[in-house]
Design a protein around this nucleic acid. Sequence first.
DNA 1: CACCTTCGTTGGATCGATTCAAATTTTTGC
DNA 2: GCAAAAATTTGAATCGATCCAACGAAGGTG
Lengths: 359, 359
Amino acid sequence: MASLTKGRRPIRLADIAKAAGVSHGTASNVFSRPEIVREEVRERVKAAAEALGYAGPDPKGRLLRAGKVNAIGVATTEPLSYFFDDPFARVMMAGISEACDATGAGIALVSAGNEEKLAWNIQSALVDGFILFCIEGGPRLVELTRERKLPFVALELGSQDATVSAIGVDNVAGGRLAARHLAELGHRRFAVLSLAFADDSTGLVSPEQVRTAVYTGTRDRLLGYLEELSRFGVDTAKVPVYETENDEASTKAGLETLFASAEPPTAILAMSDRVAMEALEWLSARGIAVPRDVSVVGFDGVPEAAICEPPLTTIAQPIAEIGRRAARRILDFDGTVRRETLGVELVVRASSGPPPGTG
Amino acid sequence: MASLTKGRRPIRLADIAKAAGVSHGTASNVFSRPEIVREEVRERVKAAAEALGYAGPDPKGRLLRAGKVNAIGVATTEPLSYFFDDPFARVMMAGISEACDATGAGIALVSAGNEEKLAWNIQSALVDGFILFCIEGGPRLVELTRERKLPFVALELGSQDATVSAIGVDNVAGGRLAARHLAELGHRRFAVLSLAFADDSTGLVSPEQVRTAVYTGTRDRLLGYLEELSRFGVDTAKVPVYETENDEASTKAGLETLFASAEPPTAILAMSDRVAMEALEWLSARGIAVPRDVSVVGFDGVPEAAICEPPLTTIAQPIAEIGRRAARRILDFDGTVRRETLGVELVVRASSGPPPGTG
DNA sequence: CACCTTCGTTGGATCGATTCAAATTTTTGC
DNA sequence: GCAAAAATTTGAATCGATCCAACGAAGGTG
């Protein structure tokens, strides 16, 4: 009563073939192409299967023969719960899900606590290809995945290794859009809350660090900001850039630093909505009104940005579309390496306005 | 340059064994138990692997031998994006993720547009067991899964089939907690916004429908509500119960109905936070103040309930804990069927207060 | 020097199916 | 009633590894 796995040895297809008095070939056909088996035989085999408690062809065996798993792996160095917690990841996964649903493919989530386990999990994941969430440790993840010799796509053009397929957005254009919006509103005193330029670094960023950035996405956003600002006559050498780890602690530390200045910024360019929303909170707690005293522009366009207080002006990426394309790239893999860049869009909400004392 | 899959036929372990002049047994050992192979030989084999561009032992082959996939399947009849959209599912998945991370297991998401595909996907999923999200069509999902003859756990004690393992909460106790809270605040005019009692039904519910409920979770919550209310002298026969589909449209339709009454309720017992939050919105749009005019109590305890306007009083389930336990049940499957019931907790927030005209 | 360990290596068996060319049976055509 | 065509069935080969009993070569011992 309490046991599901009664019989010691699981029943194999060969067992029921024998019981029904047919060859394995025929028994196999009964399950995979029943229409080519004579009805009488089909019934006999099915009856035998029923009698022996056969669970149907084991996918493990089928897989080996077929070669295709019909599932795509999504890997990250973050813990698995990242996929369900992080707003950006969630929208991305929704896009991936959509493409998978359309073709009936499954999704296998791959992650691991430590590097060694991650390597193992990537090596042994039963998938037809990988989508890589390159947050921290992107290069390492790419390296590990490359060894599998399966198709894979990196999300965000983190590094510019031209030999790996990738899908991302035009970060320079996004940066310019954000900067222009604020500059046109009249702002001239800016500060940047950036994402990582390299692993394990945080704090104010030097031009040298920008030049040697590992994460070119971060660098490109900054380049976009600065290019546009200089067109408005802002001395970009004086714009402080604080590198955060895209979390509460480092963002707040950054704000402490930036606002300790004699000439605090009237406009903050944040490289993620996450950071921007943390900033909103910090500013509100300090009694600094947004957008009256300070304007904030985020980057990403996650759903939460529309409902936070105040709603966030941001550079929206087509996150779900990136996910859909990435999934399709694996699903209809054609053996080529392609790097795709999608456009971004400025979404103006209530977190940005003219600088104080402008009318 | 553009091709990743250069060589026509993928390289097998046997190929490198031949190239290195060793048996396939030894070649296998080089990868799976390198310490038992003499260094000189090990190097030779690795060199051969490198030279031939061998991707390492193919998990497909290994799997067949090993038997264990080291991944657990999470199945639902909803589309895949449900896992990333729905607040309840997300917290649950976070719990499952945690347990999987701890043991290094992977997660395979299983779903499908239509019934036929779902059946196929469940049959062919490469997993060691299933966790079933039994929302709509729970019984069908259980039936399909049972055929795989793998361990599985149903989430929510939807049906009371004692032959399937399940983990859920004490719905009766939860219902009582919610009802008592409102009754103690002084409310005497109640209405219930319920979840489904059976598939494809919606609208006001008759005692007959309650008695023949397919979804016993829904029934139990209602039973809890009514039991407790009657202890406070409320005539439970007069408490309207409106069955929703846990979505905006049916919830709002329910509210239209309930508030069209000559004696509209002062307290709403909602069987999910989702429904409760829709109610909050509807009430606010109608200018009905919560909790001044009407109190609302939800059920679930999703994170959103804490940050909606006003924050929702609710019956919190240990959602993540349910997920963790479910995952562990599959991971350390011992062949037994067990039904587990966890406790719930009343979380009082701002959506509930004394009825109007109470001072 | 015969004998026993110990360490590494070998190669056949196995995991559970699918596939396909060839063999067999049934149908059809005349 | 017989040959050709069509429909079924067969069984060996294959997918890609791991496992393990048996074997061979050093090294140690009395």
